[in-house]
Design a protein around this nucleic acid. Sequence first.
DNA 1: CGCGCGATTGTA
DNA 2: ACAATCGCGCGT
Length: 164
Amino acid sequence: MHRLTDSFYNRHVVDVAKDLLGKTLVFNKCKGIITETEAYRGADDEASHAHKMTPRSKIMYGSPGICYVYFIYGMYHCLNIIAEQEGQPGAVLIRGLKIDDIHLDGPGKICKYLEITKDQNGLDLKTSPHFYVTADSLPTAYQTTSRIGITKARDKLWRFVVIK
DNA sequence: CGCGCGATTGTA
DNA sequence: ACAATCGCGCGT
């Protein structure tokens, strides 16, 4: 199956987050179904790293389809995929992945299992040979909730979880 | 240049 | 409920 390209990622980050559910993330020799996502945006989203542009959040203002990995709590990495047109910050946090019968629940666990670190920050999922999301997806029912682990912008229902 | 805290997780 | 653990972002 061919990979997702600019036309998929270059849309409102909330739509991209919903549509990534049920799609297959491929990283090196691992592949898994995306089961949980969160959308983060720009100036209109107080909880986002890109609420202001900083050296770290600059990548969220860039090209859709680029990988954004950040380090958190001194021990975990979190994987995001940039969305929206250049200049409009947006990123989808990958929070859940099903690899065969292994359910990875939480962004830290996913990166630990796949061995994703800041080495992958800035890679382009539109062109990287061993890092991409495929365009096929199963029909996916999902639940919408507030985002996890944030104190700001709790009113935004931007977390999406596949219903078992 | 120092300091508080975070898009987390495992353990008590 | 809390400790682990450190880079980032803001204030000085």
